[in-house]
Design a protein around this nucleic acid. Structure first.
Length: 270
DNA sequence: AAAGACACCTGGGAGC
DNA sequence: TGCTCCCAGGTGTCTT
């Protein structure tokens, strides 16, 4: 499940192979993604050089002149680098064929991802409303505390709100709250400033550690078989609903917050 | 304005 | 074995 670390890892994984290369064609086998892929996407990008790759939230931007190819991996999407043509498998929906003989292949079983022709770069409507990047200095205690003061939603929902801070999905939200010792159901405006500081630190720590670990799997982007080996995090709470807390040995509790399964420790998280 | 519900889609596991 | 049911996940959009 791609969250910010996986998207960042994907950017770094494909970058050495495609920046500076020209796009020979964009081959679309399945255009029904989150939004239909533009029918003229090939014409729009054919013959253009990929100048750079950047990430904004969980969106990847392959910059090509005045526009960019904006990719979102949704919940099940992945990119890999093909060193030479390989017969597409079941959910290999799109290939970006490059003039250096390599291809970037997009696979997405659940088709919640997107391939969008973006002519506005960072001003694109899907990007314009996004909140701060969690790994920059813009995301600090004062920023988050000011936002939380005005909100009564569960703190977990708040940190997963991409209009406030991008890139924190269901997995890392749970891990960060566990690390910070905060009950995910607690109203945002009932979390003290010192504890917000802990949470900011925890989010940065959880995300950067995952990116660091993801770096070690970059070689997988060109593995002959399979997809990028996304960081298999040793999760402390996520997906451990029926297990015991790694800190205190008490049973973890599983609840639903904002229609998302959430696991936490009632003893360690207040 | 904020919060909550819902939609999109498929594979995998549970239960019958 | 094979069917049905339910769930996971991100996020834009609609409803309250």
């Amino acid at each position: 499940m791609p969250e910010l670390p996986e998207v960042e890892t994907s950017c770094r994984g494909i970058e050495p192979f495609c920046v500076g290369a020209k796009i020979k064609k964009v081959e679309v086998r399945q255009n029904k993604l989150r939004w239909p892929v533009a029918t003229d996407i090939d014409q729009q990008f054919k013959g253009k050089m990929i100048e750079s790759i950047e990430r904004r939230g969980k969106y990847m931007l392959l910059n090509v002149g005045a526009k960019s190819l904006m990719i979102h991996l949704g919940m099940s999407g992945s990119l890999r680098v093909l060193q030479a043509p390989v017969k597409p498998g079941k959910h290999d929906h799109i290939d970006i064929v490059l003039d250096n003989g390599k291809s970037i292949r997009y696979n997405d079983p659940r088709r919640f991802g997107s391939f969008i022709v973006n002519t506005e770069k960072l001003a694109h409507p899907l990007l314009a409303k996004l909140g701060v990047e969690p790994l920059t200095s813009d995301f600090d205690t004062d920023y988050l505390y000011q936002v939380c003061k005005k909100r009564s939603v569960a703190i977990k929902s708040l940190i997963m709100n991409s209009q406030i801070v991008v890139g924190v999905g269901n997995i890392y939200a749970q891990e960060a709250l566990f690390l910070a010792g905060i009950n995910p159901k607690r109203a945002a405006n009932k979390v003290s400033k010192p504890r917000i500081e802990k949470l900011v630190d925890a989010i940065k720590e959880v995300l950067s550690k995952a990116i660091e670990a993801g770096g070690s799997s970059l070689k997988d982007f060109t593995a002959a078989d399979g997809k990028p080996g996304y960081f298999q995090h040793a999760h402390q709470v996520y997906g451990r609903g029926s297990e015991l807390c790694v800190n205190c040995d008490k049973a973890l509790k599983q609840v639903t917050i904002g229609q998302r399964t959430t696991t936490y420790c009632t003893n360690c998280q207040k």
